[in-house]
Amino acid sequence: MTTITSPTGTRLAKVFNSRQRYVPILATAAVLLLMWIGGSIRYENFADLQVLLNVFKDNAFLLVLAVGMTFVIVSGGIDLSVGSMLALSTMLCAWLITEEGWSPGVVIPLVLVVGAVSGSAMGAIIHFFEVPPFIATLAGMFLARGLCYVISTDSIRISHPFFTETATQMVPLGDYRIDPSVVTSLIVVALAFGVLHYTRFGRNVYAIGGNEQSALLMGLPVAATKVGVYAVSGLCATGAGVLYTFYTGAGYSNTGIGMELDAIAAVVIGGTLLTGGSGFVLGTVLGVLVFGVIQTIIQFQGLLSWWTRIAVGALLLVFIVLQRVIGARKT
C-alpha cells in the first residue's frame, strides 16, 4: 500500500531528476555528432576512421588528465596542479632516463608514485586544514612547475630504445593502426568508469559532492575519500605525462601550461556539474572528443590553431549556461 509515490519537483530535484540528469551528456553527444556530420560533408576524408583514431592519439594525455579531473570535480573540488604535474612527469622521465641512465621500467612506476603521493598531500591539506581546493592545488601547481625548472630549463630528448620504439609501434586493427597510447588511455577510462560507478570509493565521491555534511553524518570515510580523489588526479596527471613523453619523445619544463584548464573544460563540456555530485566518466570522453574534433576541423579548414581556443571557449560558455538553465544548484 502506498500513500505517496509521485515525485515532487523542488528546485533541487530538477537537476537530479532521472531524465534531466542525462541532458548535459546528451547535449554533448549531439554537438559531437553534428560536428562530425558537418565535417564529413564539408571535408574530404574527414569521415575516415583514421581521422577519429588520430583525434584519440593526439588527445590521449588530455583524456587521462580529464578522467582524473572528473573524480575531483564530482567530489565538488578542483585540481589546478595537473598541467604542472604533467610537465614534472615528462621532466622526471627525460632526466632520469637520459641523464641519469635509469631504466624506464623503474622510472615510469616511480613517476606514477610521485603523482599519487603529491596528489594525496594536496588532498590531505585540503581536508585537514580546510584549505579551499583552488588554493591548495594552485600552490601545488607552482611547486611542480618550479621543480621542473630546477631539473632543467632546457628540453631533454629521450633516446632510450624503449621510448623511441614503443612510440612508433602500432597496434594493427584491420586496415587501421592504433597507437599504444590510445589503448592505454582507453584502459584508464575503463578502470575509472568501473571505480567511479561500481565501487564504494566511487560512490562516496558522489556522496561527498552531493552533500559533504550528510556524507559525514552517514558515517562515510570523508577524509580518506577526499585524499583519494586528489591521489587519483595526481596519478592520472603523471600518467598523462608519461603518455605525453611518448608522444613528443622529450621532456620540457614549459609543457602543459594551461592544460589543467583544458582538462576542466573537457570535463564540464562532458556534462559534469562544477558544483559536484553529478557527472560521468563517459561524458568526459565525449568532452575530450569534442575538443579533438574542433581541433581537427580547424586543421582541415587551415585556420590557425588558436581558433580552437575560441571555439572551446564559446562551447564552454554554452554548456555552463545550459547547466544553469536545467537548474544547477547554487554553490
Binding site: L12, A13, V15, F16, G194, Y198, T199, R200, R203, N204, Y206, A207, G209, G210, N211, Q213, S214, A215, L217, M218, G219, L220, P221, G277, S278
Partner: peptide, 26 residues
C-alpha cells in the same frame, strides 16, 4: 534530512555498506 540528494534512493539507504560482489564491485 541528512542524505545525499544526488544519489539514488537505494544508494542512500546502503551507501558505505553496499552489498558487493567479490568484496569489490557494488
Amino acid at each position: 534530512v541528512n542524505l545525499c540528494p544526488n544519489l539514488s534512493v537505494a544508494e542512500n539507504i546502503f551507501i558505505g555498506r553496499e552489498p558487493r560482489l567479490f568484496g569489490l564491485i557494488n
